[in-house]
Design a protein around this nucleic acid. Structure first.
Lengths: 367, 367
DNA sequence: AATATAATTGGAAACGTTTCCAATGGGAGG
DNA sequence: CCTCCCATTGGAAACGTTTCCAATTATATT
């Protein structure tokens, strides 16, 4: 960096003290018209701009908020970060972003770094809310922070999808469409708190409707060879007619694998995903899914943080039920009414495009 | 923020001067064993951590690099940012992220902000390299910076896909698969420099092979009603057998619209996309596309910036041809050899799954 | 014109670091 | 025991701001 002008340079050029320059530029305190003038021209000539680091040191404030998420390669987080970032920017804050790659050690390190950088607040998604070294660090400094996509521990604020309620909703939808025997495809639960919540809600919902408890297929994060696992799974549970996948990618993978096993979606099997990624509506069949609003969650987290910082009254959290909605799609169709006995084979509607379309429309109205 | 301990507190508690604390903690200069000891315990007791802002003021360095991109809702940028961020983090730098939403005013403001924040370098994607106020600001301060996804102006470094060469490659691929009459679907070019480059390369490639110049379909960013536009387009150019879409989303939309027009992909029409998004391989047919490596580009940009900062020898840019590769997929299949006359209807292979599969395999080998 | 009051101004301290430099102390060698 | 040298140590300045406060100047009121 070639030498940049400081407030001293401006003062010298304008022929006044630094205090005057500061007052003029910040519109704080009094200054005569001619002084204003002189300062302004000096600023122009030197192309002066305040150094935020000098300011930060003096004000004990950085106007920066930290954001810690696992990875923005996941569009859910990317969108949330974008939403959060926009709100920050509008309020004159900048965002320091750190991705942890789902690594607890990185997470702790990231938070330590943000604390050292003196951020005014932190928005974060941690791996384990109950046991997070980073979170403890934050708490011990009473630094404003707000969780994102974590289920809030008691008395804490978190902007997150209510995974459990969403799971219940999916069970409701399957029930309304006459599917009584269902399955759940998810990543092994150890690594994902959220998938577990979805499953538990789904189980609960099935129980509410006296449906068979959902069969569980846990897969590794290796999405490629889902087909053999799905095959074995469906052989074990032959009367399943509906599958809830823990996210949209997994739902797509499931559809693909089903197709490889000559199982048509939605004729032979209905699939519901989770997240509501954009492509879900661009493919055929379109993907029925729980759609979430990551941008809004991110934006909300930012607003919460900002209100904590400014001390203004904190934003109301959305109702749990408003953190998601069901979107109908071609991957889910109602089972013919006479299928209530669960005799899957007998339940197929005739293989007729018209029928399918009607079913889809009906389905769309049901939301 | 409850009062945090400063170096003075540590010094007081350890019974020494601040200089000693600084020396001990930075392992710089000499210090006796017992002093080290005392300082360390004081640090533990107070849970002390250096304030980076004090440091920054003194060292005229923030160990922060700024990153300006249009939007991380676009996975291409999200991945690039993630790659860049990781490299920065590994080098002990943090990343300040600002998304401009494709808005030139925001872009300028973002850069101004980053300069005020005294970032040590900037990675940026601008809307118009030739005419960017922000870029001028950076240049006038001789601040280390590196372009990303912009075609580099003379003498500048930019980590970007060679869109032109990629366009040529797509033409090559169509040629190898006997497609002579092609089209290009892209956003109106005013807003996207890159799409234009792709089109120009594609045209060039078609010319190289003495194919008909590609027909151009410019669509608005409203992806929903592509169908009528595609219909009109194909009526105007009835013998088109291959379409190159300016990105994967548009390719998927094109496939969907084609299907609505009862045009089967790939039987009646081959489609090639651009970007190589993940879902392209999860759908049916899989999407033939130009795959790019956004993470690598982002990481490369970071390395360039870091080497500029440290003054080490700058990383070699990748060869233009290495910034992308073609990935075969089910959405592209060869036209039967006897179709060279362009008589599309006569060219259909028999509607036989086996044939399709063979065609695909052959296609995959051709890369 | 003299005084009281208000507006304007600049010096200096403070924020948390690093680093220069001078001062102190201890040990070795004479 | 004296001297010299080196290791250790702390005071102070500097980095770029803001803001308190005292000093100066301008304006209003008699």
């Amino acid at each position: 960096m070639g030498q940049v002008a400081t407030i001293k340079d401006v003062a010298q050029r304008a022929g006044c003290g630094v205090a005057t320059v500061s007052r003029v530029l910040n519109n704080k305190g009094s200054a005569s018209a001619k002084m204003r003038e002189k300062v302004m021209t000096a600023v122009k000539e030197l192309d002066f701009q305040f150094s935020e680091v000098g300011r930060s040191l003096q004000s004990n404030t950085t106007r920066t908020i930290g954001c810690v998420v696992p990875s923005i390669e996941n569009p859910v987080y990317a969108d949330a970060v974008q939403g959060a970032q926009e709100v920050c920017l509008d309020a004159g804050y900048q965002m320091l972003l750190i991705c942890t790659n789902y690594n607890a050690e990185m997470e702790t390190h990231a938070i330590r770094t943000l604390i050292a950088k003196q951020v005014d607040g932190i928005i974060l998604t941690v791996g384990d809310v109950q046991n997070s070294e980073g979170l403890d660090l934050i708490r011990s400094r009473t630094l404003p922070h707000c969780l994102l996509y974590n289920t809030a521990p008691a008395g804490q604020i978190s902007w997150a999808v209510d995974d459990h309620a969403a799971g219940v909703k999916v069970a409701d939808v399957f029930f309304e469409n006459n599917h009584k025997h269902t399955g759940f495809v998810g990543l092994d639960f150890l690594s994902s708190d959220r998938a577990r919540q979805r499953f538990e809600g789904f189980s609960q919902g099935c129980a509410n409707h006296k449906m068979t408890p959902p069969a569980l297929l846990e897969v590794g994060d290796n999405e490629d060879n889902l087909t053999p696992q799905l095959d074995a799974f469906l052989k074990r549970h032959p009367n399943i007619t509906g599958i809830f996948a823990s996210n949209d990618y997994r739902a797509l993978a499931t559809i693909r694998s089903a197709r490889q096993l000559s199982i048509d979606v939605p004729r032979d099997m209905s699939i519901v995903g989770f997240d509501g990624i954009k492509v879900g509506q661009m493919i055929d069949p379109t993907l029925a899914t729980i759609v979430t609003a990551p941008r809004k969650l991110g934006a909300g987290a930012s607003q919460t943080i900002l209100s904590m910082i400014t001390g203004s009254t904190p934003l109301q959290l959305p109702l749990k039920e408003q953190t998601f909605s069901f979107r109908a799609g071609g991957s889910l169709m109602p089972l013919a009414a006479e299928s209530k006995d669960g005799e899957k084979v007998a339940a197929f509607p005739p293989s007729d495009d018209q029928t399918y379309k009607k079913a889809k429309i009906q389905q769309e109205r049901s939301t």
